[in-house]
Amino acid sequence: MVSKSEEEQLNRLESQVENGGGGAWEYLCLIRKLKIRRSDNVLKYGLTILNDPKKRSSIGNDEWTLYEQVAIAALDCHSYDVAKDCIKVLRKKFPESKRIARLEAMLLEAKGLWEEADKAYSSLLEDNPLDQATHKRRVAMAKAEGDILKAVEWLNKYLEIFMADHEAWRELAEIYVSLQMYKQAAFCYEELILSQPTVPLYHLSYADVLYTLGGLENLQTAKKYYASTIDLTGGKNTRALYGTCLCASAIAQLTKGGRNREDKENQDLHSLAVTALEKDYKKRAPSKLPLLTSTLRSLKLSS
């Protein structure tokens, strides 16, 4: 996660560099530290440093880090020749390095030579089965190939060892949603909620998945998670408000007439959500208010 002050610092440096005020190296360092994807800028400013022997020698040993950074950025920008040159320089300096071997595999991957890249990654993993970055590259490659099932397989294999890596869980959850395997996706989102219980985004996605799964129990749970999202975001999340309304309407349809105890306790929630939605629309998009009212009426929630 990038904090606000860091982002400000980055933007300030960026405008400074763009206007020729220097500080390119600091800018690149910050990008690397924050792991931000600004490949075009990295390529542009990184190359100006690398092509100038004086500037290059002034950064000392970090030169090689910069070569790596620029190589990856070049791959991202489809300038394979630049990437190739960078990798060549690195290879000359570190003939035995595994890290460079991964870069070479990435070059193959970027060119679309899937099989060769796959072979390269596999041999790398054979040497060091705990190389997280290579594992992830392989997943990304399978995804880029369009072979989603293979990506799922690799990802599962990865998570078997690195089961506390919540970013991988998130990736898997999103893949499962795209494959419409909602039960599996729900499991992944549970895992995400466990690792970061106060991130409203995960509550919201979990609720979405549960709502999509359907069934009374899931709907009730989904409503609860929409409620927690509302609470965690202070009622600012429109999707959660809509979700509450949808869940309430679906539950009402399923339990026609026979309302159980729990519903009676919480029946205020969706009417409050409706009011909040209406207020929000009045404030921010008054022209769409009729649309909202008609939608809500079709859900039989608005009075």
């Binding site: 749970t221 609860k224 998670y225 409620a227 609470d231 009622g235 919480n266 929630l269 909040a276």
Partner: peptide, 17 residues
């Protein structure tokens, strides 16, 4: 704790409305 969250969400929304 999610059942409690429903009440809390209600309170939040009330305040917001």
């Amino acid at each position: 704790v999610l059942s409690k969250f429903e009440q809390r969400a209600e309170a939040t929304l009330r305040k917001l409305v």
